[in-house]
Amino acid sequence: MAKHSYEFKKKIVLEYLSSDEGCTSISRKYGMESSSQLLKWTAAYKAFGDDGLKRSRSRKIYSFKEKLSVV
């Protein structure tokens, strides 16, 4: 499970983009360990929009036939 929800990430990124506060002060305000994570989320949001903040991992289940064709 992800440590931070999509809603939490979006709230913080939008606050960072719309305010004059720096990433360090906003990170401290929300109890984040490091401000670099906020910068990564902001870059992902600028590049991909809402999809940049959503969890990208999905568990794909492959059939035996698909596995065998790879080998």
Rank of each mutant, 00 (worst) to 15 (best):
M1L: 04
A2F: 06
A2R: 12
A2N: 09
S5G: 09
S5H: 03
S5T: 15
Y6N: 02
Y6K: 05
E7N: 00
E7S: 07
F8M: 04
K9I: 03
K10Q: 09
K11D: 10
I12E: 00
I12R: 00
I12L: 12
I12W: 01
L14K: 14
E15N: 08
E15V: 04
E15A: 11
Y16L: 15
Y16T: 05
L17K: 09
S18F: 00
S18D: 09
S19A: 09
S19V: 08
S19H: 07
E21C: 13
G22R: 05
C23M: 12
C23S: 14
C23Q: 14
T24G: 07
T24V: 15
S25P: 03
S25T: 15
I26N: 03
S27Y: 03
G31N: 13
M32V: 02
E33D: 13
S34R: 14
S34V: 10
S35G: 00
S36W: 03
Q37K: 12
K40C: 02
K40I: 06
K40S: 08
W41T: 05
W41M: 05
T42N: 11
T42K: 13
A43H: 06
F48W: 12
F48R: 12
D50T: 01
D50E: 15
D50C: 05
D51K: 11
D51M: 06
G52F: 02
G52R: 01
G52P: 00
G52K: 01
G52Q: 01
L53M: 04
L53H: 02
R55Q: 12
S56G: 13
S56V: 06
S58V: 10
S58F: 08
R59M: 08
R59N: 12
R59W: 10
K60F: 07
I61A: 09
I61V: 14
S63A: 03
S63V: 02
S63I: 03
F64Q: 14
K65E: 15
E66D: 11
E66Y: 08
E66L: 07
K67R: 13
L68F: 12
S69H: 11
S69F: 11
V71S: 13
